[in-house]
Design a protein around this nucleic acid. Structure first.
Lengths: 220, 220
DNA sequence: GTCTATAGATAGATAGAC
DNA sequence: GTCTATCTATCTATAGAC
């Protein structure tokens, strides 16, 4: 094949013992391939990563990878989906654990923590998504879109409720705010160094800037 | 060649009428190539963009591009440098125009405006840099590093002075703040739609969030 | 389930005509 | 300064042995 803007692989082979389009995370080799591929996609990009490199890193030959995946496109597609799912699940779980009577502001703060935690500690699935999504062919972006959209909607609902409750200033456009928050959190994958600071420290600095701003207004 | 992590092109041909490693922006074809290539690199990524696509978009054959550039790597290298230079110049120019007696906060605000303006209206050089830099081979990142570093230093100096002057809260780490600001500004290339809002509007919303925060503290 | 071997397509780059 | 033609390397993917 070669160039990635050519028409997409149409075939849909059925191989023994495989379930298609379901992430058999129990399968060890398959999981290993996803792990090393997401790291390579994150570090070098989808197009620059070869199946030989993926095979090498997974401890097998390039051809063997095709026992587990029908195509390179199917691999990135699954990685894109897993990335968003990790973050979304992390955010949902943390918010549900808070119960019903927390303040809207604290829900938003928890969502920030959850996003950051999912992003920076759940392997390379999330960052592979962030770094590659915008440059992938339309067909691949569209496959990932429903899962992305669900996550975006989760944030928009949360921010809207916080604004209605008076915890977010009313002259702020929610869509711009959501893009701003997720954007500034996502950018941390470009520079956060786990050796130099914990995720919790980073989260509290970002929450502070987000709600209080960096200005002093003559106070300090 | 093919894979981009192979060793870098060593040759240094000299062709008539060419100045090497200097951006002859007067040269029309050369400029056209840089324009279309930066757009392709931005949209599809460096590795996924072929010289045939660049040639097509520039109205010439792939082979002809090599009259103007020695390699694909030299092209992206020049584009990376031009991208940072655009933004840095825009920021410097705006700050210099303000004169000496403005407040430190207003200098920072002007820097935000300049960065955003350079980013969103100066062609695709800046966004090609933002989207590709982190995934390029080390050798290419190192070539671009001095120019990046100069820009980063410019921000760090500015933020430090603003903090010393009492315009930025003292418990804020300047390096984290700089990464946060540039990160959230850079992320706008992923979503800002010039049709739906002016850069000035976007800049004022971001300045507001940055200095005042989105919280209400019971006020509104 | 992984291997070897290879098919077929396409990449970056070069040579020489014009 | 651009074209055509082409070299060589490498890519994704497949086939069949084990």
């Amino acid at each position: 094949m070669g160039a990635m803007d050519k028409k997409v692989n149409e075939k849909s082979k059925t191989r023994p013992g495989r379930v298609r389009r379901t992430s058999n995370l129990e399968n060890e080799s398959r999981r290993k391939i996803l792990d090393v591929a997401s790291k390579l996609f994150r570090d070098k990009g989808y197009a620059a990563t070869t199946l030989r490199q993926i095979g090498d890193a997974a401890g097998m030959q390039a051809g063997s990878v095709y026992y587990h995946f029908d195509s390179k496109e199917d691999m990135i597609s699954e990685i894109l989906d897993l990335g968003i799912t990790y973050v979304h699940d992390e955010v949902k779980r943390r918010i549900e654990e808070m119960g019903k009577d927390a303040s809207m502001r604290s829900y938003v703060e928890t969502a920030v923590e959850g996003h950051l935690y999912g992003l920076l500690s759940h392997g390379d699935f999330v960052s592979a998504n962030i770094r590659n999504y915008g440059q992938l062919p339309l067909e691949l972006r569209e496959r990932n879109r429903p899962i992305r959209q669900a996550y975006v909607t989760c944030w928009d609902k949360l921010l809207k409720r916080a604004q209605d409750a008076g915890d977010i200033r009313s002259d702020m456009d929610i869509k711009v705010l959501r893009l701003f928050i997720i954007g500034s959190l996502n950018w941390t994958v470009e520079w956060h160094d786990a050796e130099k600071g914990t995720i919790d420290d980073l989260a509290s600095q970002i929450k502070m800037v987000l709600f209080e701003g960096v200005g002093t207004n003559g106070k300090k």
